[in-house]
Design a protein around this nucleic acid. Structure first.
Lengths: 154, 154
DNA sequence: AGTGAAAATGTAGCGTA
DNA sequence: TACGCTACATTTTCACT
């Protein structure tokens, strides 16, 4: 699918405010509401926009501890690890990656004690390295056309 | 702020579908639309819901390479690192963490060549370790009450 | 791109615990 | 006092042309 300036603008607006109405979106891109809706539907059907989500602050929900747990899972244990650890509610992100630490988990907890308990579970499947998150300077930053170095299509 | 079952249900629904209408939300929690809207507004004003965002698939946007770059930034260089690297459009997540690798960056790129160019930039501020993401098994999984082990309040 | 029907939203006033 | 309900006016969405 080929994207033009307007599509990128819509993607940008929706990544920043996923609840913006089509009327408002239309105003921002200087298009009619039906035309705008049509474009957004196309982005959804093309699998470019895969959904919409409320962004919540775990801190305010009583989950002040955030950590990245790297786990070097023994390959034979991978199925059980996915089943028993990756599925735990504390896990917000789980990526299988290259390199020595084959799994990277982002977890949120109520306390360091609960983090310890989580890490103990993960330890059963391989060696772990845990880093506490001091501060997040970017979280789910919008994907923009800037990544392409300002190259223009169409 | 004290959350009851209904608030958690609303948080869950909105994290899964951030564009759900208040009428639909109301139906799902068996409440009137105005009462539902009121509760969501309270969650927003309390800073629990910080926003809404469209979820996009970088793959479909021509960004097939995703990587986690760990950077051991020399503390004197941190301000410039934040200014010159963390702000780059490729960076979707940037966390300052404890441990040897003080920064964790999640980046998306068009190619391994562009990833290499990115890492070269990051290298100017400290040693790096790069892991390519094979697959993501969880991404921004909703924060649910399950994390609290099924404890009920109110 | 414009139009009209249907649906969703926001506001106000009332009732209940 | 806090919370939810109904009713109504306004805005938005959707299926047409």
């Amino acid at each position: 699918m080929e994207l033009d300036d307007l599509d990128w603008k819509l993607l940008d607006l929706l990544q920043r405010d996923g609840r913006m109405t089509f009327t408002e979106l239309a105003k921002r891109v200087s298009l009619s509401a039906p035309a705008t809706t049509e474009r957004v539907r196309r982005l959804e059907h093309a699998g470019i926009v895969t959904g919409y989500a409320a962004v919540v602050d775990p801190q305010r929900l009583g989950l002040p501890i955030e950590a990245i747990v790297r786990v070097r899972v023994r390959s034979l244990d991978t199925p059980r690890f996915r089943e028993r650890v990756v599925t735990m509610a504390q896990v917000r992100d789980a990526d299988h990656v290259t390199g020595d630490d084959c799994w990277l988990l982002r977890v949120v907890c109520r306390s360091t004690i609960e983090l310890e308990e989580f890490v103990e579970q993960a330890q059963r499947y391989g060696d772990t390295t845990t880093s506490l998150v001091f501060s997040s300077h970017a979280r789910n930053r919008p994907v923009t056309r800037e990544i392409f170095g300002g190259i223009v299509s169409r």
